[in-house]
Design a protein around this nucleic acid. Structure first.
Length: 787
DNA sequence: CTAGGGTTAG
């Protein structure tokens, strides 16, 4: 084989390299073995007698094992200190996803030149390891032997996590005199725009003696990112007068502007420009076109662009799915999702976002038909029927589909399957089934996939296994905010506000960029634990440091936090000074706080505002009618309910589930149809007596119907959570823990009752409601009755 | 052997 190698002129390598990777591997490993067996000590160090064009081979290598093999061959051929080749390897390993090999290779280069440094720096940036790349550059800048060049700065400027970092780097750029390099300048413009300092970005742009398309593009997108469309269009105009031609990048920044400003004519003109200049083949351009047409509601146009694409990436699929999903055609959208899986495209978070909405739309229709059946089964007042139920519908639908897949064994589950099925199990709190899937994922090595793993973290978190969620979190790559958000929210719903904050600090230290979801998780974690000052700090940090404008969810968390902690005035001031219009959820949160702290005056004010806002959310009508019911104003309660009915709103029926063995049992309030119904109600009666002897007094304020006292007690006793708990008690061994899941918030009287039940039965009872976890043990709840 | 500016949600 070695002699064969000698004979081959380099150009003859080409056919071999076009073969599959294992062939290259085989080819090189046999030549390697030959070399070792004939010349073990490499005495015959005439490397040049072997013609290996590593340059060419590296470029065609797509497999990490082949790369390692090539690395070994390099050592055997005595090229262990060839700076050029090792530098190439640094880049190759990073491209193939193994950054640790990249950095060890880099560390072993004895005489690193600026190419080596640049390669390492950009390798870190490409894999999102911004902190490491900054450290690497800092080290480089402290050396005297090597000087950074203009290749060094663009990646580093991308890695800056704060304006301060950016300004520091800008100083170095000036010190080295690279500020007029078009690449460096574009990076500077991008950097300043990213941190909201568009004026500075614009100054860099204006000061450039020479500009290329990239410079114009950077400035245009800089203004867009900061919401200044007018200024962006002005730059575009000037670009036209200076006769700089728009390229694919310009176009793909332009199209979202047309979509956003609903400029159909402008959008179509840009499309014509694209066709005229042959820019259609660019995926970014086509994707942007699909999104724009979708926003215009012109589905046929979006479809035509999608059909005409030669290459489709993840964004293309997400875009076409979202196009149909957002234009009220969930069936077609679902069809595209299936086709996407069929062609082997891996779904991501955004796919799942659309998917959730698709299932929501589909189930709502299905549920509509089921409403009538429900009226008969539940003995709720006329108004209090289904819808909202969609999520429950989604869960059972997804689980059914998975079971069918298992039985049929015709479809091989992939990442998409897992990210659909795991949230369904999290949703009903089915830990064991979720764990079974975890087992399968370990076999498939899919559990390290960030999206699948995040679903698992979420599942463990929502099923009450916080330790499992944590240990899984530490096993997976933590480069994006996705897994961090999941773990922070898990900690939050368990009432571990401080730990959630600690995780956020770790996230910052690791250089992972927090997003608006991170802050929602964080603020709600603080709110569950009553950490007022800490939440205020997060709220400030989010705005000052991350430049994230708080949205209604963030404000909602803050209002909730102040309200529950009893700072009703602070809560009210926040609401009245918000730069955005308060919606029903904000007023509802404030109202709930007024209910807890018995502030009737503010409560009345909040409820008036609540009804002014056109609310689709039935929960607030229920809350309001509950407040009336609490004080015995039944006419008021009835009025609110009829108002809700007029608006076509129906109450979500409460249900609780408990897992016994491998079966998930679901109970609705007043359930009479369970096979072990008689046994359950008998046990309830016995328990009730014991509870009363220990001092339990039923709190009728949680009964929302206008009925006699004895009937009120019966209603409380047959709340779904209590049925589920008792079923758990009679169906599992003594003293084993019971896990309950409830789709709504746990009722206050049931919360109190569960404390007694945990003491009497010596059971640990873990209740997860729509808001958080409650761990009951020995007559005490972990939430300290603060929720 | 190493660099910039771009498309998706709520």
């Amino acid at each position: 084989m070695l002699s064969l190698l000698k004979c081959l002129p380099p150009r003859n390598f080409k056919p071999i390299l076009q073969l599959q990777q294992p062939c290259i591997y085989h080819f090189f490993s046999s030549s390697l073995q030959h070399k070792i067996s004939h010349d073990p000590d490499n005495k015959n160090n005439k490397n040049n007698n072997v013609v290996v064009d590593f340059n060419l081979v590296f470029r065609s290598c797509t497999n990490i094992n082949v790369a390692k093999q090539l690395h070994a061959l390099l050592l055997v051929l005595g090229k262990a200190q060839d700076v050029v080749l090792l530098t190439q390897l640094v880049t190759l390993y990073a491209t193939l996803g193994d950054l640790s090999l990249s950095s060890t290779t880099f560390k072993h280069i004895q005489r690193k030149n600026i190419f080596s440094w640049n390669s390492m720096v950009s390798a870190y940036v490409r894999r999102g390891r911004y902190r490491d790349s900054m450290d690497c550059v800092t080290e480089l800048l402290s050396l005297s032997g090597v000087r950074p060049d203009f290749y060094t700065f663009p990646p580093v400027l991308k890695a800056c996590l704060s304006l301060a970092d950016g300004e520091k780097m800008h100083c170095w750029v000036l010190k080295m005199g690279f500020e007029h390099d078009v690449y460096v300048a574009a990076s500077l413009i991008h950097l300043y725009s990213r941190f909201g300092a568009v004026e500075v970005a614009h100054k860099v742009f204006v000061d450039m003696p020479v500009r290329d398309v990239g410079s114009w593009n950077a400035m245009i997108s800089g203004f867009c990112q900061n919401g200044n469309v007018a200024e962006a269009l002005r730059v575009l105009d000037r670009m036209k007068t200076e006769e700089v031609k728009m390229d694919t990048v310009t176009v793909s920044s332009m199209l979202p502007i047309c979509a956003q400003s609903n400029d159909v004519v402008g959008g179509v003109l840009v499309h014509l420009y694209v066709i005229k200049h042959g820019l259609e083949s660019d995926v970014f351009v086509s994707n942007a076109l699909i999104n724009m047409y979708s926003k215009f509601g012109r589905l046929q146009d979006a479809q035509r662009v999608f059909d005409g694409m030669e290459v489709r990436d993840l964004v293309s699929w997400n875009s076409i799915i979202a196009a149909y999903e957002q234009n009220d055609d969930p069936v077609t959208a679902l069809g595209f999702f299936k086709e996407m899986l069929f062609v082997g495209m891996r779904p991501d978070l955004l796919t799942v976002v659309s998917l959730a909405s698709i299932f929501g739309q589909l189930s709502d229709r299905r549920i509509g038909r089921a409403v009538h059946g429900f009226v008969v089964r539940c003995r709720w007042l006329e108004v209090d029927i289904v819808i909202g139920y969609a999520q429950n519908g989604l869960a059972s639908e997804a689980i059914d589909a998975y079971n069918m897949m298992e039985e049929g064994r015709t479809i091989v589950p992939n990442q998409g399957t897992w990210v659909s099925i795991l949230p369904a199990y999290s949703h009903v709190g089915a830990l064991q089934q979720g764990m079974k899937i975890h087992g399968r994922l370990i076999k498939n090595c899919l559990f390290l996939d960030v999206f699948v793993a995040t679903c698992l973290i979420d599942m463990y978190g929502k099923c009450g296994r916080l330790e499992d969620a944590m240990s899984l979190f530490y096993e997976i790559p933590q480069e994006t905010s996705v897994p961090w958000n999941a773990i922070i929210s898990s900690l939050g719903i368990h009432g571990h506000g401080e730990k959630a904050l600690q995780l956020f600090k770790d996230m910052r230290a690791d250089g992972v960029k927090a997003d608006h979801i991170t802050f929602v998780s964080l603020l709600s974690a603080c709110s569950h634990s009553g950490l007022v000052d800490e939440a205020q700090w997060c709220f400030d940090t989010m705005q000052k440091e991350y430049r994230i404008k708080p949205n209604l969810k963030h404000y909602g968390c803050m209002v909730d936090l102040f309200g529950r902690a009893g700072y009703l005035e602070k809560a009210y001031n926040l609401v009245s000074n918000m730069p955005i219009q308060a919606d029903a959820s904000i007023w509802g949160t404030l109202l709930a706080a007024c209910r807890i702290h018995g502030n009737a005056e503010l409560g009345t004010f909040a409820s008036d505002r609540l009804l002014e806002v056109d609310s689709e959310n039935v929960g607030y009508y229920v809350l309001l009618s509950n407040i009336y019911a609490n004080v015995g104003k039944w006419e008021g309660a009835v009025k609110v309910r009829s108002l809700a009915r007029d608006r076509g709103l129906r109450k979500t029926p409460g249900w609780s589930s408990v897992v016994v063995g491998s079966v998930v049992e679901v109970f609705y309030a007043g359930n009479q149809s369970h096979p072990q119904c008689a046994e359950i109600y008998e046990e309830l009666r016995v328990l009730n007596a014991k509870m009363k002897s220990l001092g339990y007094v039923p709190d009728y304020s949680f009964v929302l119907q206008d009925v006699e006292e004895d009937e009120k007690e019966e209603i409380l006793t047959s709340h779904s959570e209590r049925l589920a708990i008792v079923f758990g008690i009679i169906s599992t061994p003594p003293k084993s823990p019971i896990r309950i899941f409830k789709n709504l918030r746990v009722c206050g009287d049931c919360h109190n009752a569960t404390k007694y039940i945990s003491k009497i039965t010596e059971r640990e009872i873990i209740v997860r409601d729509s808001n958080r976890f409650h761990h009951f043990k020995d007559g005490i709840c972990s939430c300290g009755d603060y929720w």
